[in-house]
């Protein structure tokens, strides 16, 4: 549930850390007890990243232990 708000948190945390450079990829770490539905995160990802530094960024999710719910890393977009 509430994955829309969670993904919005993710966008704002990454944006804060990215400076003003566009981001190509975000990787999360999610545990089975985190109460997070990863398909729902993917579902709203396009909408919450729209018109942000994360526009078009992909969302990767790796499985983790317990109630882990972290933004593992992000990758800057390579500027042409």
């Amino acid at each position: 549930m509430h994955e829309l708000g969670l993904s919005r948190n993710i966008v704002s945390i990454v944006t804060e850390n990215a400076g003003d450079k566009p981001v190509a990829r975000v990787k999360l770490s999610v545990g089975p007890l985190a109460c997070v539905e990863t398909t729902a995160l993917q579902f709203c990802w396009d909408i919450v990243t729209q018109d942000s530094l994360l526009t078009g960024a992909s969302l990767e999710i790796e499985e983790a232990e317990g109630d882990t719910f972290l933004i593992k890393e992000f990758e800057y977009r390579e500027m042409a």
Binding site: L6, N9, I10, I13, V14, N17, A18, P22, A24, R25, L28, D46, T55, G56, F69, L70, I71, K72, E73, F74, E75, Y76, R77, E78, A80
Partner: peptide, 20 residues
């Protein structure tokens, strides 16, 4: 979506809890 990124962009390790 359009993708203009390359696979070798700089990777920043964050390790920040989403609900922090």
């Amino acid at each position: 979506k359009p993708h203009v990124h390359g696979p070798n962009g700089e990777v920043i390790s964050l390790e920040q809890a989403v609900l922090s």
